[in-house]
Amino acid sequence: MGILRWRAEKLPTVIRKDILNDTRVVTGASDALVEFRDVQFFRGDRAILDGLSLTIPRGKVTAIMGGSGCGKTTLLNLIGGRLRPSAGQVLVDGVSVPGLNTRDLFALRKRMGMLFQNGALLTDLDVFENVAFPIREHKRLPEPILRNVVLMKLEAVGLRGARDLMPAELSGGMARRVALARTISLEPMMVMYDEPFTGLDPISKGVIAKLIRELNTGLGITSILVSHDVADACAISDYAYLIGSGRVIGQGTPRQMQESAVDEVRQFMDGLPDGPVPYRYPAPGYLDDLLQGRRT
């Protein structure tokens, strides 16, 4: 079934519809799996995303880079339908996500995985049960088959031996790999990685990067990689977007990005502290602020 499913992802849309037997509306076999059109998103009256448009191609690793707090996690939550845009369209596989009812949204979510910034493992279940969780919830598999599926997923991330540990007993890197095994346990068409590298040592980083690449080439999973780490993200992605002040300020292949002459892109790629993108949160004049204490 799993193999059939990922093979099916690659077939022309008309045939695929029958094989996947899904409730989704299949629109033309476009190359874009995810599409943002002029998306706006507000927190209070602060625009986090403001006229953002981008497309995520099928079967590729796409990096989304940007400074802390620029709305990268927000963007993933918009794709997953956990947040709604105030204006603009978010399309996944040709379907408008904000327009879905709960049932269709959940059906769509079964086909996408998200790796959270901190793993988000269920702390009352051990590693094995964490990976088994989505399968138990959504499929009726006999126990021996379930066990094999879970062990295969754990083997893929190299943690078959850690199946009896509780999440609290795992290191950060291990927890993220378990979360990754859980994310792919339903064999999604797409995986969103939220900062998969932060807080990891170089070796664990390498392991995760290799896993992301393998899942992409081996299973044809479309990958969206959110990161503020330029080098790591560029190393494994096919295409990259740079986000700043709520919109795309640069895009291209990693190489194009590295050679870009645009100021904003340069500042980010080279890690310059100040430039077109201010590193300060908006504030009143510094001197005024300091003198305030004396005046009152």
């Binding site: 709960t102 959940f106 996408m112 998200m114 959270f116 901190n118 988000a120």
Partner: peptide, 22 residues
Amino acid sequence: GLMKATEQLAGMEMMAVNPIER
């Protein structure tokens, strides 16, 4: 509250499991 703080509930939602039901 801690499940919420550690994104376990959000994680469930993304696995198409409704935390209200589960």
